[in-house]
Each structure stands twice: as C-alpha cells, then as structure tokens.
Design a protein around this nucleic acid. Structure first.
Lengths: 202, 202
DNA sequence: CATTTCAGATGACGCTTATCATGTGAAATA
DNA sequence: TATTTCACATGATAAGCGTCATCTGAAATG
C-alpha cells in the first residue's frame, strides 16, 4: 500500500510547493489551478483528487508558504534587547534579495491587499498565520510563552512596517528609490520599540 | 459643439469615478472594463472611445482616486512638531471608517501588492503618486518646498507603516484584533520621527 | 487470477475577460 | 437641407477561469 499513498503524498507536496510559489509571486489571482498543476507536473483534472476547491488550495498554499519561512526569517531569540531584536529582524526582512525573490519570500506580504477581499475562511487563515508570526517575533520558538501587551503591540507595528515597506519597495519603479524605502523602514524599525514603562524593565 | 464634447467629458468623468471606486474596493483585477462601464451607465463597447486599453484605464483610475483624497487626508501643515504631525496623520488614516470604506479610501493601500506585479507603466504611475503623497506629508501643499532627507525618510517609513497597518486590519478576521492593529500602528507612528540632529532643531 | 480502487488524463461545460468590427442615430458642419 | 462625424450600442472573437463527468491503467485486494 506504500506505493499508492506515497505517490499521492508526493504529488500533494509538489502541488503545495507550486501553489505556494505562485501565491507569493503572482498573488491569489495568479495561483490558478491550471498553472499550479502544470508546475507540479500534472494536469488540471487531477486537482480535485487533492482539494475540494480553489479556496481550499489557497489556504493550504498560504499555510505551506509560511511553514518553512517563519523559522528561517524570525528564528531564535538572541540575547539582545527588544529594540535590537526588532532592528535585526528588519535588517533580515527588508533586503533587496527578499524584494527581488517574492516566490521564496513572505506570503503575508505577498497577499496582504488581496486577503482583505477574500472570503471569511481565507481571512481566518491569514489571521492565524499572522498571529503565529507575531508570537514568534516576541517569543521565538517558545510556543507556550506569552508575550507582554507592549511587545505584542510593537510586533504588530513592526509587521505592518515591514509588510508595507517590502510592498512599496516592490511597487515602485525607480531602483534607487526602492532601496531608499528599504533603508528608511529599517531605520524606523529600531524606533518602534515602546519606551519601557520602568527603567529596570529588562 | 458644446453638447457633443461636453457629453463625452461627462461620460469620462463617470468612467473615472467608477473605475477609481472599483480599483480601491476590488483591486486591479476587480476593475474590469465591463463592470466599470456598467457602473458608469454605459456599455462595454463605448470604452475604447475613451481609453486605448485596460492598462491606460488602471493608471487613470489610480491618479483619479488620489487626486481628491490627497488633500482630504494629508491636508495642510499645522503649527505642531514633526512628531505630532505624523501622529495626527496616523490618527486620521488608521481609522475603522477608512478600513471599512475602501471604495473611498487610499488607493496606494488598495493596490500595494498588485502594483508590484504590474507592468512598468503602472509601477511608474504608482511611484509618481507615492512621491506626491510623501511630499505632501512633509510640506503640505507647498509644491515648491523641498523636504529634508530626514523628514522624507520618516515620511517613507510612515507611509509603509500606514499602508501595512490598514492592509493588515482589513485582512484579518477578528474585529477586536483588527482594531488593535490600528491602535498599535497609531501608537508606533509617533515614535517613527527621527531624533532631531540638534536639540535646537525646530 | 479476478476484482476493486482511485490518482491522474482527457475533454467538456458555463462563465468572465479584453479587444475589436460593425451598426446607429443624433449632433456638427457644409 | 445634405453630409460628415463620432460617442455609444450590439455582437463576435479568442483566451482564460473553476468545475465536473468520464475514461485509463496500474496498484491494491480478494
């Protein structure tokens, strides 16, 4: 029984990889079933052996895209201050490499404006993934940790700044201007961290 | 000769209004020619008497949407500090009303991620409009004024934060969470302003 | 060996899209 | 009044989309 189910699992993996790439590179409307299946080396008819509808695929692609990327981008907590952490994350996120390789980049940034016009199920999936990323920014991979309200607010603003920054850098035509957008957002990221309520706040 | 040309000008105005609304509410892919012309009270065939292609319409719609909104949102310089100005603009931009009425909202936010995947002409139009908005943030309506590098960088980060913030607030499913995003970004906007290089910097 | 299962292929359906060729009727012009 | 212009309507085209019915062949099962 290994051959059959294993073959299907491999096909599913190729479909997920292809749809996650398409989703990030061409957005929700670009992740069309025919394109994705062709990328996966299959024909469009085979799609419905794996997903019930295009909406299901879109949600799976979003989750799949963020599964690998989150650890890669946000990674572990280091022993630096909260402000330094945000600045370090910004330097890692707001790069020309990230800007120019959307297919491997952040899916939350890729579909930010399209998600707003999607159905409730997709928006819920988007929210879930965003919350996971916010938690990882605050707490690294410590899943059971609970961030402070201040840190969570900072992380929210940091994500808005980063997603907005990478989107603007991609939307703009002039290369020097695009680079300036990235730099300006990196510089601002370090200033986002709230003043600690007490000077002895670690 | 007034009747003919005037009638055409009125039709064009309705097409621009309709396309600007569609662009902001449903994005680039939603601003389809048939929809726009129906909204304008015309049939699709009449479209090519006004525009050469859908791309031309999209650029015109973007410009038209920002023409009225820029003054309404950014308005005049008041006699407060740079930091206070950014905070005041954030409070005006990151509202529930703006979030829930995209058809009348900021077009730069509506098409941010789709613009990145558009052709060079549209990206140039997007850049032009973004630069105008940045200038207005720094200098109000004083067209000939030249902002400092620090203020322009701050304005860039402010726009990224605002566009990212309104996009996330729209993309998310839970209402309380959406409101928290708006609040967190408003709070962060005041912290974006660079430290003045000299303490006597006005 | 005979039968069942089912991932994938083929092809079709109805819908939407951008674009254009042609027709029309009233206004502008002679 | 006769002619020209042209904004708009009608209808067609070709391509794209999501979805599904049907066929296939090989693996799984008895």
């Amino acid at each position: 029984m290994t051959t059959r189910t294993q073959l299907k699992a491999e096909s599913l993996q190729r479909i997920l990889d292809a749809s996650a790439s398409r989703l990030r590179q061409e957005g929700l409307s670009g992740a069309a079933i025919a394109n994705v299946m062709r990328d996966a080396g299959l024909t469009h008819g085979a799609f419905y052996a794996h997903f019930a509808s295009k909406g299901e695929l879109a949600m799976a692609a979003l989750r799949h895209a963020l599964l690998g990327n989150r650890r890669r981008w946000i990674g572990e907590l280091k022993h630096d201050s909260w402000m330094q952490r945000l600045q370090r994350l910004a330097r890692r996120y707001l790069t020309k490499a990230h800007r120019d390789k959307p297919a491997e980049g952040c899916a939350l940034a890729a579909v930010a404006t399209e998600a707003a016009r999607s159905d409730a199920a997709f928006r819920q999936a988007y929210e879930d993934e965003l919350r996971k990323s916010l938690h990882a920014i605050c707490c690294g991979s410590k899943a059971e940790a609970i961030p402070t309200d201040e840190h969570l607010d900072d992380a929210i603003a940091f994500m808005a700044l980063s997603i907005g920054g990478i989107s603007l850098a991609r939307a703009v035509s002039d290369d020097a201007f695009s680079e300036r957008i990235l730099q300006a957002c990196i510089a601002a990221a370090g200033r986002i961290a709230s003043e600690p309520p007490h000077p002895d706040d670690h």
